[in-house]
Design a protein around this nucleic acid. Structure first.
Lengths: 220, 220
DNA sequence: ACATTTTCTTACTTTGGAGTAAGATTACCG
DNA sequence: CGGTAATCTTACTCCAAAGTAAGAAAATGT
């Protein structure tokens, strides 16, 4: 509610609306897109509706982004970048494995919490949509899983085996599910969620890495 | 490929197509719908296309199901029922908690494996779509999570606490993610997947239940 | 002041696909 | 046999929403 179409319309001289440089408008359009896509899904959200939220008319979107799909891809890219930045910003390479894992979880849940609704829905949308956006998100998801697999393997000082890959998939799935849950329970603390998941997942991971190390000693 | 429009067209007398009773046709339509929705998503699949796959013309679908959305809901309901039957068929109430958990996982992964592509995509579709289908699937998912939470609580002989609920969410998410993974790796054995996830998840669950029991003793 | 570029809008075309009208053909039942 | 009900098709209507044409109004430079 109380959407602001232009915060300095009165300051500008005359009846014409405030002109805004392209770079800024693009970000406003992306903000509006994320809001609309998150609320109604890719097909549910209309370009006209998005334009309205951004306080602008439809052709501008086509002028700056070319098509609805490209607009969507631009959203995905921006949000994906933000998520990656968030995680990269809190994980310290010199920490031990368990600590790194916990940091990554904390970064992820904090991001979801900060971007209420927006990201997770967008993320789920993108994986379904088909086309470029799906490819990009799936690629990012795949890289994340590989990374976690390698992290686990490194903690067990070995190569990533099939169990580590499976564990990584399971862990990522658990994160996604808990992220959804956080959206329904807005008063949940991201750090608590991260810590609890960490507590829950670590015994199994620890056991798995132990087994890996044992197997490796037996083979060597 | 080699889609069969009617296996007894030659057997029937004359050029007219084989007539089929409603109950049978409905199932054929649902089969076609699942195939099309799974391949192209709810919006990507056209009613005309579904009709073609079922070897029938479009108005029949509207005559029997009313609208595209109702058709989709009917798909969801049928597949959800099958999944529930599958799980209910393998879980034995008198078994201990760990065994029950493993059985449920086995049932789930077997179902996904048997209904290659179809179900998981449908399921993911439904959770996004909005409308009746989303409500039903989310409700089913919620019941499943509650069930698992209660199972865990019962194993710890206590009421379901917030940690149990969280663990249940994480576990369901892990299952969904691994189901997706199975679709990309068709040569994966469902039982192996179930067993591995069980091995991976149990230490954490066990520890959690232990803590719950300890806390309860302290309070009593 | 004038030309050029950038920002922005109103009003339009187009189309893909959901949904329907009207009726043909075949089975069923006295 | 009719007559009624069920199955099934061709050939439409209709609309929401993507995308576009044409140009107005403001900024920017010279």
């Amino acid at each position: 509610m109380t959407r602001v179409t232009s915060q300095k319309s009165a300051a500008s001289h005359g009846p014409g609306k405030a002109r805004v440089p392209r770079a800024v408008r693009e970000q406003q359009m992306l903000d509006a897109s994320v809001e609309a896509f998150a609320a109604n899904g890719y097909h549910g959200a209309g370009v006209e509706e998005i334009a309205a939220i951004a306080g602008i008319s439809k052709p501008m979107i086509y002028l700056y982004f070319g098509s609805k799909e490209e607009l969507f891809v631009a959203c995905i890219r921006r949000e994906a970048g933000r998520l990656m930045d968030m995680i990269a910003g809190v994980v310290r390479a010199e920490d031990p494995a368990e600590r790194q894992l916990w940091s990554a979880l904390e970064g992820f849940f904090t991001f979801v919490s900060d971007h209420r609704g927006a990201w997770t829905v967008l993320y789920r949308q993108a994986r379904i949509q088909g086309g470029q956006s799906t490819r990009e998100v799936d690629a990012m998801r795949g890289r994340t899983i590989d990374l976690i697999g390698e992290l686990l393997a490194r903690a067990a000082s070995s190569e990533p085996g099939p169990e580590a890959v499976m564990a990584a998939h399971a862990l990522v799935g658990a994160c996604e599910s808990l992220a959804d849950w956080m959206l329904d329970n807005p008063d949940t603390d991201p750090k608590t969620t991260a810590k609890q998941l960490s507590h829950f997942a670590w015994p199994g991971l620890s056991k798995l890495m132990e087994a890996t190390r044992a197997r490796q000693r037996g083979e060597a």
